[in-house]
Design a binder for these strands. Sequence first.
DNA 1: TGTACATCAGTGAACGCGCGTTCACTGATGTAC
DNA 2: TGTACATCAGTGAACGCGCGTTCACTGATGTAC
Lengths: 238, 238
Amino acid sequence: MTGAAKTPRERYRQQVREEVKEKAWQQIAGSGASALSLNAIARQMGMSGPALYRYFANRDELITELVRDAYRSLADAFAAVGGAAAEATAPGTTDGAEPAGPGLAALAGALRDWAVADPHRYFLVYGTPVPGYRAPEDITAIAAEMMSVLLDACAAVPPVSGGASPDGGIEEHLSAHRGWAATHPDLPPSALRLALAFWSRLHGVLSLELAGHFTGMGLDPARLFDAEVRALTEGRAG
Amino acid sequence: MTGAAKTPRERYRQQVREEVKEKAWQQIAGSGASALSLNAIARQMGMSGPALYRYFANRDELITELVRDAYRSLADAFAAVGGAAAEATAPGTTDGAEPAGPGLAALAGALRDWAVADPHRYFLVYGTPVPGYRAPEDITAIAAEMMSVLLDACAAVPPVSGGASPDGGIEEHLSAHRGWAATHPDLPPSALRLALAFWSRLHGVLSLELAGHFTGMGLDPARLFDAEVRALTEGRAG
DNA sequence: TGTACATCAGTGAACGCGCGTTCACTGATGTAC
DNA sequence: TGTACATCAGTGAACGCGCGTTCACTGATGTAC
């Protein structure tokens, strides 16, 4: 990826690091993130426990790395969809007046695909926070990167002529606190609101689905998710 | 509460059980549910570890009890609000044509109050699921009880004349799978949809808020929550 | 191509720790007559 | 009111376990001349 001219040793180091992370994910899948054990991973790799300290300074560094990879994979999925949408919109749009509806729907699809592909990865990022854990700065930067892609999609959605329904001052509030959307200083408050609705509503359905709160209800989570996406792209956030 | 004529010994047992649970919550608040340790609780109570086995069969039973209490407290909060709303509606309604809007808003308020009062309790119920843990039946019954109160509130909301916007077949799907709403066999699909939107959207905002994903954004989570409640009660679910 | 040296992956023993849980036992509290 | 017995809360020792992490060491891989 970054850098080049890896020596064989560097290659090998990277391979082992990857394998460690792989086993770590398997372990998380089985027993949850808090039960992650370096010794168990080493055992599974046919190595002795202390060997892993050649590759990770300690347990915390491994977990941070897993969190970073998780964020990175979602950000990449978003960027791929966002980039594709941007290219499709740029040249000669053939599709009529709503290029952003599909954009949002595509992002939503990417989010759900990412989440259901590995629920434990989802929960490592969006689940119960680990007490005392602070994500390093480069990880929050990745989160900002995703938000920027989302804001791009929201930018293209025309503000809805909502009528007189009072919004409780939410759009004023968003106008007053838009530091999190600093990448898009010209976005109307309705677009900010749409982005937040996208984020919170879709995480709502996803977290209930992946935590199993819909099982036993006999409902199809994909349809519930789809219904929320439709509500966002057609009915707007309000 | 239930039963009567407790002997002093039974009283004492109950007191100690309560104290154990209290310390357990404190420990969860500090280090998360997975780090819950019987020995640590005993130490904190000035007792030796094995003493707790007079009160709980094992660690799992304690956790299950905590989960049960958490559900119970939310269900009670819901029932209180639901009961109050029902009484207010019953005699001579003075408030105009929308008795259920306030009902839903009141339930939403109860949910948020309950959640922010103790975020760890919230996450024990709605956070990352504990791998391998199956809630006993009486707990799912409590969940059904809450759903029933919510459905009561949704029943009073008149179906919105939504126009021709296609809903992707979600209401048909809900009509076909309404076992989870068996307490309300006559509810229109739009009310079922409203209940699910209530549940998933509010949990979306709440879980992001309590996991700290809004901090650093400078936004007021209470306002975001309020905006979603307004969208539910005014704009309906779609 | 060959030798001398430096780098680094991995081992095994060890440290200290805390956990859940069982068990035999003591001592206090309640019960029956 | 007093005595004999049963119940039960709590203790301390012990078992077996796995964890994260440090450390001195071996042996293989790469580098410099």
